[in-house]
Computed example of a mutant assay.
Amino acid sequence: MPTRLNPYLSFRGDARAAMEFYQRVFGGNLVVNTFGEFGTEGEQSDQVMHAMLETDSGFTLMGSDVPAEMDYEPGNAITVSLSGDDGDELRGYWTALADGGIVSVPLERQMWGDEFGACVDRFGVPWMVNISAPRG
C-alpha cells in the first residue's frame, strides 16, 4: 500500500453516526471496529475504536470515539477541504454536509472566480468546498 495522508476525526460517543453520515455523503466502503471487539467491556464497548471510509473517488476518512477517560476538546485548528472541477459532485457533497450544520460562507461564486463555501457539519467538523472555475 502506498503512503497516504488523510483526515482522522475524533468524536465523543457519536463516531458511528458521523462515519455512517459521511458514507451516505461520499459513498464507499465503511469498516467500523468497536472497543468491545478488542476486549473493552461496559459502556464504551459499543463505541468506535477505529473506523475507515474508503470511497470510489479515492477519499479515505478515518475516525473514532475518544474514551471518556481521555480529554476531548473539539477544535477549529483543522478543516477538511474538498476541491476540484466536478461541480455537480462537489455541490452534492456540499448540500449533504451543510444539511443540519452551520454555513459560515454560502457556496457561491467568489472574487477569485471559483465557487466556494464553508460550513461546520452536524457533528462539529469544519468543511470547505471549492469548485474550480474553468480556466482559459
Rank of each mutant, 00 (worst) to 15 (best):
S10D: 11
V105C: 09
G100C: 01
R109E: 15
Q23T: 02
L82D: 00
L97S: 03
P126Q: 10
V25F: 03
N76E: 15
T40A: 14
A51P: 04
A133Q: 09
F59E: 04
V80A: 08
F123I: 07
Q23S: 03
D86R: 01
V129C: 08
S132Q: 14
G58T: 03
P2N: 14
V32Y: 01
G42I: 06
V105G: 00
T95I: 11
A51H: 04
Y8Q: 06
S57T: 12
S83D: 11
Y72W: 10
S132C: 12
N76C: 12
W127V: 07
A77G: 15
D88Y: 02
V25T: 00
T34G: 03
A68P: 03
V125N: 01
G13T: 00
M111Q: 13
R109A: 12
W94D: 04
L107C: 01
N6I: 00
M128H: 09
D65G: 05
P7A: 11
G36D: 11
S45H: 01
R91E: 11
R122W: 07
F38R: 05
S104I: 13
F116M: 08
D14T: 00
E108R: 07
D56M: 11
T79A: 13
S57Y: 01
D85K: 08
M111K: 06
S81H: 13
M52Q: 11
G27H: 05
D14C: 02
N33Y: 12
G75F: 09
F35E: 04
G84T: 15
E89C: 06
G28P: 00
S132K: 07
N76Y: 14
E115T: 06
R109L: 15
G28Q: 02
D121P: 00
E108V: 14
D14I: 07
L97T: 01
S83E: 14
E20A: 01
Q110G: 03
L5W: 05
V129Q: 06
T95L: 09
G75S: 13
G27R: 05
G87K: 05
D86E: 15
T60G: 09
L53I: 07
Q44H: 10
L61N: 07
L61E: 01
E89Y: 12
A15S: 01
Y72E: 13
F38A: 14
R135F: 14
G92V: 04
L53R: 06
R24K: 09
S132H: 11
E41V: 14
N130T: 12
T55Y: 00
F116V: 08
F35I: 10
H50E: 07
N29V: 15
I131A: 09
A98Q: 06
P134S: 15
A18M: 03
D71A: 15
